[in-house]
C-alpha cells in the first residue's frame, strides 16, 4: 500500500491576540514528514503542540509560513486528514457502527462499500460484536477504539492524534499503544502523535519532536531507529527515553528560575 501523506512545514508562525497584545504560540516551525512516518511530538503544556496539530487538521487557521500536505496548502478540514482527540467525542445517540459511519458521511463510494469499510474498521480496532452498543455502554478504552475507527474509516492519508490515551488508565494505555502501532503498520498511514508521555513517544515514534514553550518552538528532533515492536525495558529504549526526558529537566529548572526572578522583581517594579 503506497499512501501519499507527505507533510511539509516551513517557517510556520502562529500568534493569538490576548487582551489586544499579540501572543506568540508557534515560532519558526520547520518539519518535513515522509509518507508513512510516525512522528511523536512531546513538550510541556503551553509549548503549542496541540495548536500545531489543530492547524494540521484545519480547526485553527490564521498562520504565516508554509503548511503543505502532498503539495497542497492545508486549508480547513479535509477527509484526507483524520483525528483522534483526547476525549473520544463520540455522539452518544449513535451506536458504535453509526458513529464510525459518520466518518464516511461525505466520502465518495456506494453504501455497500461504506458498510464494508465500517465493518472492517470496527474489526481492525478489535470491537467486533459491539456494533450496536451505545457509547454509555463502553469503557473509556473501547470508546477511544471507536474514535480511532471513525478517524480511519475513510482511509485518510494522515492520522493526527491529540493525546489520545491521556485519559486512560496505565494498562489500557499500554495495550492501546500496541494496537495503534499494529493499525498504523496495517494501514501504512502517516501518523502524528501529540503526547505528554515520553515513553509513549519513544515506543511509537520514528522521530520525536521535542518542543519548548514561550514561544512554542522545536527544540530538538530525536531519531528512534529501534526495531518494532519495541521493548520498553531494553537499554537502548531507556537511553532514548532518558535523553528526551533530560530536555525537560533542563527546561523545568530554567522555568523555575525565571519564575522566581519574575516574582522577586515584582515588588520593585510596583
Amino acid at each position: 500500500m503506497s499512501h501519499a501523506g507527505t507533510i511539509d512545514i516551513q517557517q510556520l508562525h502562529k500568534q493569538y491576540e490576548v487582551k489586544g497584545q499579540p501572543l506568540k504560540v508557534l515560532q519558526d516551525i520547520n518539519l518535513s514528514i515522509r509518507p508513512g512516518e510516525f512522528i511523536s511530538i512531546v513538550g510541556s503544556s503551553g509549548c503549542g503542540k496541540s495548536t500545531l496539530l489543530r492547524l494540521l487538521i484545519g480547526l485553527e487557521s490564521g498562520y504565516s509560513g508554509k503548511l503543505v500536505l502532498d503539495g497542497k496548502p492545508i486549508q480547513g478540514t479535509s477527509l484526507e486528514r483524520g483525528i483522534v482527540f483526547q476525549e473520544h467525542r463520540l455522539f452518544p445517540w449513535l451506536n458504535v457502527e453509526q458513529n464510525v459511519a459518520l466518518g464516511l458521511l461525505n466520502a465518495p463510494g456506494t453504501q455497500s462499500e461504506k458498510d464494508r469499510s465500517v465493518k472492517e474498521h470496527i474489526a481492525l480496532v478489535g470491537l467486533k460484536g459491539f456494533e450496536t452498543a451505545f457509547p454509555y455502554q463502553l469503557s473509556g478504552g473501547m470508546s477511544q477504539r471507536v474514535a480511532i475507527a471513525r478517524a480511519l474509516v475513510n482511509r485518510p492519508e494522515v492520522l493526527l492524534l491529540d493525546e489520545p490515551f491521556g485519559a486512560l488508565d496505565a494498562l489500557t494505555r499500554t495495550r492501546l499503544q500496541q494496537e495503534l502501532q499494529r493499525i498504523w503498520q496495517a494501514e501504512g498511514i502517516t501518523a502524528i502523535l501529540v503526547t505528554h508521555d515520553v515513553e509513549e513517544a519513544v515506543y511509537l515514534g520514528d522521530r520525536i519532536v521535542v518542543m519548548e514553550p514561550r514561544p512554542g518552538r522545536i527544540k530538538r528532533i530525536v531519531d528512534v531507529s529501534l526495531a518494532r515492536p519495541r521493548d520498553r525495558a531494553s537499554a537502548e529504549f531507556v537511553a532514548i527515553k532518558d535523553d528526551v526526558l533530560g530536555e525537560f529537566n533542563h527546561e523545568i529548572n530554567h522555568a523555575t528560575v525565571a519564575e522566581r526572578l519574575a516574582r522577586s522583581s515584582e515588588p520593585l517594579a510596583a
Binding site: 484545519g58 455522539f91 459518520l102 458521511l105
Partner: peptide
C-alpha cells in the same frame, strides 16, 4: 467538542442540524 467533529467530517449545515 462535538461541533469540531462535525467540522472534521465536513458536515454541511443541514447535516450539522440533522445529525448533531
Amino acid at each position: 467538542a462535538h461541533a469540531e467533529v462535525a467540522r472534521v467530517y465536513r458536515f454541511t449545515a443541514w447535516q450539522t442540524l440533522r445529525r448533531l
